[in-house]
């Protein structure tokens, strides 16, 4: 079997947590199999098919977790399209278009550069090094943040819509594209960008998760034929199990992070990435 059920449980649970924690799921899914001596490689067709299932599960969990927000946002988008403008004070419509504006550059870069970047940077050694870079980016974003990491009052979606400019939305969205490099975290790049744009930690995390949902979901749906086609032969069972564990761990991760980041910063995740990246670099070098 290409991926056994024990591996699928471990990789699924890891994917769910590391996709949402700002620590790079792609980096971990490249480095971990190498450290454990598993014969699984990032560019193998069956592994990509497996990842489709776990990503889809993660996107569904995110959509479900923020379901009420999404319903408000979608209604706001519909209102603004109907009225051919964003009404003053319609924060749901504004947040919706901020998400659209942020999603387009990341989506375009992903569509056009995902394959070449994955081919270029998919070695465990490179992923471990970029994990260190990711740690540096998180610590740098905390240092350069425009606002103290307080817990503000009021509607978080309205705060985000008020604080973010169109330019910063494009910037945060584009920063997500850095995650095409294994080792750089999508949620970390978006959270860091949010901090630089003036959001609190909690709001930056919320915006990062809202921004991640269409990107992760669309990427998974686009690649669903890989899972259902010949590349998925012999992987669909483990992929289903992996998806269930990814969903469970993603739910716990987003629940934890939305609470944790009300009062804490990204610094522990940055330190973790520095240490894990350095340890993985050494381990890969000596094995």
């Amino acid at each position: 079997m290409k991926i056994d059920y024990l591996q699928s449980i471990a990789l699924g649970a890891l994917q769910g947590v590391s996709e949402l924690f700002p620590i790079s799921s792609l980096g971990h899914s490249v480095v971990l199999p190498r450290l454990l001596g598993w014969d699984i490689h990032q560019n193998d067709d069956y592994f990509l098919a497996f990842l489709v299932a776990t990503h889809l599960a993660t996107a569904l969990v995110l959509f479900g977790f923020f379901f009420r927000d999404w319903m408000r946002i979608l209604a706001g988008l519909g209102r603004s399209l109907r009225d051919r403008g964003i009404a003053p004070g319609d924060t749901d419509a504004r947040l919706g278009w901020l998400l659209v504006v942020g999603t387009i550059p990341a989506g375009l870069i992903g569509l056009l550069l995902e394959h070449p970047l994955r081919s270029l940077f998919a070695s465990p050694r490179t992923a471990a090094l970029f994990l260190i870079v990711n740690g540096g980016l998180l610590l740098g974003a905390e240092r350069l943040r425009r606002r103290a990491p307080e817990r503000p009052d009021g509607d978080p979606d309205a705060r985000i819509a008020d604080e973010l400019t169109w330019r910063s939305a494009v910037g945060v969205g584009t920063a997500q594209a850095l995650a095409l490099i294994p080792g750089i975290s999508r949620s970390g790049a978006a959270m860091g960008g949010g901090l630089l744009a003036g959001l609190s930690n909690e709001d930056a995390a919320r915006y990062a998760f809202l921004l991640a949902t269409p990107i992760i979901g669309a990427a998974a749906i686009l690649k669903l034929p890989d899972l259902l086609g010949p590349a998925g032969d012999g992987v669909r069972g483990p992929a289903l199990v992996g998806a269930v564990f990814a969903a469970g761990s993603a739910y716990l991760a987003v629940r934890f992070l939305m609470g944790y980041l009300r009062t804490h910063t990204l610094t522990p995740f940055g330190i973790y990435c520095l240490l894990a990246g350095a340890a993985a670099t050494v381990a890969i070098a000596v094995t």
Partner: peptide, 26 residues
């Protein structure tokens, strides 16, 4: 197909932009 989706997304984006720019509020 991905190139096609990218072109379609940008085309839709431009369509929405014009839709808003020619709206009553603008």
């Amino acid at each position: 197909v991905k190139h096609g989706i990218a072109a379609l997304v940008v085309a839709l984006g431009l369509g929405v932009l014009v839709w808003f720019r020619t709206g009553p509020q603008t």
